[in-house]
């Protein structure tokens, strides 16, 4: 890829991202806004892979769409190479889309059922004027081969492919405009185990080859660890822990990260820890204070007073944690 421009400016930087949704209340009813993501900061360097992990309702998918400005943030801003996406003109923002792309979770919903896959892969090239019709067709064929399919498949419709093959097509479409940054929103969770490994490996290879920056969203810590340098753990719209992927995987600090890891079944050992009680509270009605306190084994009454800020861990400088008791509970 191109040489880094100004090395001090990260490729992508998000500050204080908050997104709330107003439920459709109807004519005579206003429902309370639901805050899906609150006060999230993200920094992503060129070629870096960041994993975002959490259970349903943690806001990880919303975060992915906010970073691509597929929905505007309620508060905060997203800077791509230092440029605020919100203040750009519509045309300038569309131009930037060439450099940031997305791969979706559901390989059945992410491809237009009525257009050939070749045409869909070529879309980005034509939209941005990167090739003429013949050139786009040639490049689409090359992209298909790059993701492990055959060039002759280009004229087929999506329904002729299996889930794993569709996910390859979606990746080819995202790669067409040679982006610097890709958001992958649970790209393997709808796939069978044996196919998941194919796609994870494909993403890892492409990242290496093309120097892509990757935001990989998943509910599965194991998969994230295989693919990512850093990991962010989210719970109910907040980041509760962030740091190097393998370090967090081997010795999680936040009580939630620990519980998540302990709850993930393993082929090698049976669960020893009692599972976390209760379920994720409703996003519409989050607990006061620390969002995790209602299920936290280490919670104290003081935790109900305020949400702890995401700060550098007192004993582990390479990671950040949002927990009032971070220093005490660390072994």
């Amino acid at each position: 890829m191109s040489a880094p421009l100004a090395s001090d400016v990260p490729l992508l930087r998000a500050e204080g991202l908050t997104r709330s949704f107003t439920g459709r209340g109807g004519l005579f009813r206003r429902s309370r806004p639901v805050v899906a993501v609150r006060g999230v900061n993200v920094t992503l360097q060129r070629g870096e892979a960041l994993g975002v992990v959490g259970e349903s309702g943690c806001g990880k998918s919303t975060l992915g769409r906010l970073l691509l400005h597929l929905m505007p943030p309620t508060e905060g801003r997203v800077l791509f190479e230092g440029e605020d996406l919100a203040t750009l003109s519509g045309a300038a923002r569309r131009g930037l889309r060439r450099r940031m792309q997305m791969v979706f979770q559901d390989p059945y919903g992410s491809l237009d059922p009525r257009r050939s896959i070749g045409a869909q892969i070529a879309d980005g090239l034509l939209i941005h004027g990167l090739a003429d019709a013949a050139g786009a067709e040639r490049q689409a064929a090359a992209l298909l081969r790059q993701v492990g399919l055959e060039a002759s498949h280009a004229t087929r419709l999506p329904h002729e492919f299996s889930g794993g093959q569709r996910q390859r097509i979606a990746i080819a479409r995202a790669l067409a405009t040679k982006p610097d940054f890709i958001v992958a929103d649970e790209p393997v969770s709808a796939l069978d185990v044996s196919i998941q490994a194919q796609i994870v490996n494909l993403l890892a290879d492409l990242r290496q080859e093309l120097g892509l920056a990757l935001l990989f969203i998943s509910h599965d810590l194991h998969v994230v660890r295989h693919l990512c340098d850093r990991v962010m753990v989210m719970y109910l719209g907040r980041v509760v822990e962030e740091g190097p992927a393998s370090a967090i995987f081997h010795s999680p600090s936040h009580p939630y990260t620990r519980a998540l890891l302990a709850a993930t079944p393993s082929m090698h050992h049976r669960a020893k820890v009692a599972p976390l009680p209760g379920e994720v509270p409703s996003v519409a009605n989050p607990p006061s204070g620390c969002v995790f306190r209602t299920r936290c084994p280490a919670a104290r009454p003081a935790c109900a007073e305020a949400m702890p800020p995401l700060e550098t861990h007192p004993n582990r400088p390479e990671r950040q944690i949002a927990c009032w008791r971070a220093a005490e509970i660390e072994p």
Binding site: R65, L68, L70, R94, G95, L96, R97, R98, M100, Q101, M102, F104, Q105, D106, G109, S110, L111, D112, Q120, D123, G124, I127, H128, A170, R173, T177
Partner: peptide, 17 residues
């Protein structure tokens, strides 16, 4: 609401297209 429409937005397509 389907992803393939979002994908078009992500590709930078205009509303008309």
């Amino acid at each position: 609401a389907l992803d393939y429409v979002t994908a078009q937005e992500a590709l930078g397509a205009r509303s008309g297209r």
